[in-house]
Nucleic acid binder design. Sequence first.
DNA 1: CGGCTGGTTGAGGCATCTCAAACGCAGTGG
DNA 2: CCACTGCGTTTGAGATGCCTCAACCAGCCG
Lengths: 244, 244
Amino acid sequence: MHNTTTPPIPTAAPCLSERIGHTLALLEERVPITRRLVRCGDTVYQAGERMESLHVIHSGFFKTVNLSADGREQVVGLHFKGDWLGFDGIAEGQFACDAIAMDTGEVWTIRYDALLAACARTPALLASMHAAMSREIGRDRESMLALCTLPADARVADFLRNWAVSMEQRGLRTDQITLRMTRAEIGNYLGMKLETVSRALSRLERDKVIGFSEKGRRDLHIPDVRALGAFVARSLAPAALTLQ
Amino acid sequence: MHNTTTPPIPTAAPCLSERIGHTLALLEERVPITRRLVRCGDTVYQAGERMESLHVIHSGFFKTVNLSADGREQVVGLHFKGDWLGFDGIAEGQFACDAIAMDTGEVWTIRYDALLAACARTPALLASMHAAMSREIGRDRESMLALCTLPADARVADFLRNWAVSMEQRGLRTDQITLRMTRAEIGNYLGMKLETVSRALSRLERDKVIGFSEKGRRDLHIPDVRALGAFVARSLAPAALTLQ
DNA sequence: CGGCTGGTTGAGGCATCTCAAACGCAGTGG
DNA sequence: CCACTGCGTTTGAGATGCCTCAACCAGCCG
């Protein structure tokens, strides 16, 4: 983790894949871990449950769902390999949301007390954990920014772009992605209705920014990730080209 | 800062005020601190700046502002006494947003390396910091929930309620609050336009949920905090009473 | 086959945005 | 003292983006 030259912003992308491997290796050798295989729909933890452990995703894909007292429910986060689950439970000693598997996968469960003890012996582990919490805060704020400043179509494009970037950072293929969420779930996550998601995807397809696989409407391919970013930018200043 | 009589709602409220005092005392005795007085508009840190220190608010009121590459700008957090500033900078070693004072106040600045060293010696300090990060994640998710599930009027009511609760948790008066934000800033934070904020406040006043001070439209008083919660609930199920 | 779940698309309605006018207040300078 | 200006706020009227409601389609499974 020693930088010879400090790069300005030359894509932190390849870095993250290594960092994930590093963190997983570190955990494996320094902390008692319980491995658990999960299937789509399994809950890793539930709101209200006592927080005794944190979890790190070894493989698979997960969502966190916030439930308010009056029954409103919202997907507040999507999580991939290397992400931690359960930070929300530290403050109050119990979880504030549900963490649910969206696919088969494996989570590593680590008792929080054991983790802290290991962190005391291994500063790099503490640094990993802090970095993960920090990144989570940053991602939440990016979500808020998108929710508040982007129109529906652009929000969907941004969502797909973030997904592709997440894949890229983990060394997976970005041109082809299979959404494991229904339109309703995507809409819930993005603060819009399922019909709006559907229309947005259709428009993105019409604009050739994405394409649907012949297999079905859940799989789509992204010819060029940057085109998604360009679509977002375009919908922010539609008249800028003609005016100036 | 010891309360002789516990305030109306004996929930987790009194707890937090004590915890803030505890954390500040702990910092004061275990870590080298730089105190800094700030005035409205001063920046505590800026996006892109190297993260060398974290900050804890000793007094005053601050906002964090996220700025996207394409120029979109959004208030993503409001912070009061006892809150930490700068967590977003840990992951990448540089801050991802601006932290700006909204009022005169004092921040305590702590070098991150010194903080980690102190945490190694004082587990309670580490616990405090983790709890603060965890709470921040929780609050961000609450914000997302509000943004995605509440109509504009309810969002404003919820915003005021959260403000009042924050005051209450810190042992300050909740019936009278002076917004130190313009309508435009509130709207930016809540994902709506300033006119919508203004209309929402007018409606809340008409419904007697809030009242404006005779001094001006920036000061308002809240007869009953629970009425704000009730207003939120009402706008979620307007027809429920008549239907069932 | 028939039911079920998820997706697409259209038509109309509503909440919020946009544009515009007017007001109060504070600061400034004649 | 009174314009005069600038900023923040309020309120109205019209435009629009998204929601609601509804119909229909495709794949899947008993």
